[in-house]
Amino acid sequence: MRLAVLKETKAGESRVAATPETAKKLIALGLTVAVEAGAGLASGFPDAEYAAAGAEVAPDAAAALAGAKIVFCVRAPDAPLPSGTLLIGTLAADADAVAGYAQGGIEACSMELAPRITRAQSMDVLSSQANLAGYRAVIEAAGVFDRGFPMLMTAAGTIPAANAFIMGAGVAGLQAIATARRLGGRVSATDVRPAAKEEIKSLGASFVGYEDEESKSAQTAGGYAKQLSADFYARQAEVVAAHIAKQDVVVCTALVQGRRAPILVTEAMVASMKPGSVIVDIASDAGGNCAATVPGQMITTPNGVKVLGFTNWPGRIPAAASALYARNLLTFLTTFWDKEAKAPKLPPEDDIVVGVTLTRGGAVVHKNFLPATAA
Rank of each mutant, 00 (worst) to 15 (best):
A53S: 14
S43Y: 05
Y50V: 02
A53I: 04
A58D: 12
A37V: 03
A52S: 13
F45L: 05
A55F: 06
A42D: 14
A61Y: 09
A62L: 12
A52N: 07
P59N: 12
D60V: 03
P46L: 07
F45M: 01
V35E: 03
A62E: 14
V33H: 06
G44E: 11
A53T: 11
G44M: 05
V57R: 08
S43H: 11
A63K: 14
L41T: 15
V57T: 12
A52C: 09
A37R: 15
V33I: 04
A52Q: 14
A62V: 11
V35C: 10
A42H: 10
A63Q: 12
T32S: 15
A55K: 05
A39D: 10
G40M: 00
F45A: 01
G54W: 04
V33E: 06
G54K: 02
L41Y: 01
V57E: 06
A52P: 10
Y50P: 08
A62W: 02
A51Y: 01
P46M: 04
A62R: 15
V33F: 08
V57S: 03
P46C: 01
A34M: 01
A48D: 14
G40P: 06
G54T: 07
A51G: 13
V33C: 10
T32V: 06
G44P: 12
V57M: 02
P46A: 04
P59A: 13
A52D: 14
A42M: 11
P46Y: 00
T32E: 15
A55I: 01
A42Q: 14
F45S: 00
A51F: 00
F45I: 00
A63V: 12
S43Q: 05
G40W: 02
T32P: 01
G38W: 05
A55L: 05
A53E: 09
G38N: 08
A61T: 09
Y50Q: 07
G54P: 10
A62T: 13
D60W: 00
A34G: 05
V33T: 08
E56G: 03
A39T: 02
A62H: 09
V57H: 09
G40Y: 04
P59Q: 14
E36D: 08
A48L: 06
T32G: 13
P46E: 03
V35A: 06
